[in-house]
């Protein structure tokens, strides 16, 4: 049941984007809690330090292996990013 709700939000957004109408969920994270039957919205911003779309991106092409990239921990990277 739950994926249907989110999947149709996605389809609606897709149609809006294709037609260039309405206000799409750019910069907004819609959160749905089925048990409480609540929708909430969180404002999300661009990060100027983002490794791919920030001002000085460190990722300028695809990483060679995303499966391996996600399997290793990123504690170190996170620590560096926090500096």
């Amino acid at each position: 049941m739950l994926p249907g709700t989110i999947g149709l939000v996605m389809a609606t957004e897709a149609i809006k984007l294709l037609l260039g109408v309405g206000r799409p969920l750019v910069g907004r994270l819609l959160m749905y809690d089925a048990m409480r039957m609540e929708f909430r919205e969180l404002k999300v911003n661009r990060d100027q330090h983002c490794p791919i779309c920030g001002e000085n991106p460190t990722i300028t092409e695809l990483i060679s292996d995303y499966v391996a990239y996600c399997e290793i921990g990123h504690a170190e990277e996170l620590a560096t990013a926090a500096d």
Partner: peptide
């Protein structure tokens, strides 16, 4: 029982890494 949706429009709004810079622990 929870879901999320958003639109990631490059250079106009945040990308996924703006929200989650690196993958979570394995």
């Amino acid at each position: 029982f929870e879901g999320q949706a958003t639109v990631l429009k490059p250079f106009d709004g945040p990308c996924y890494r703006c929200m989650y810079p690196t993958p979570p622990p394995p």
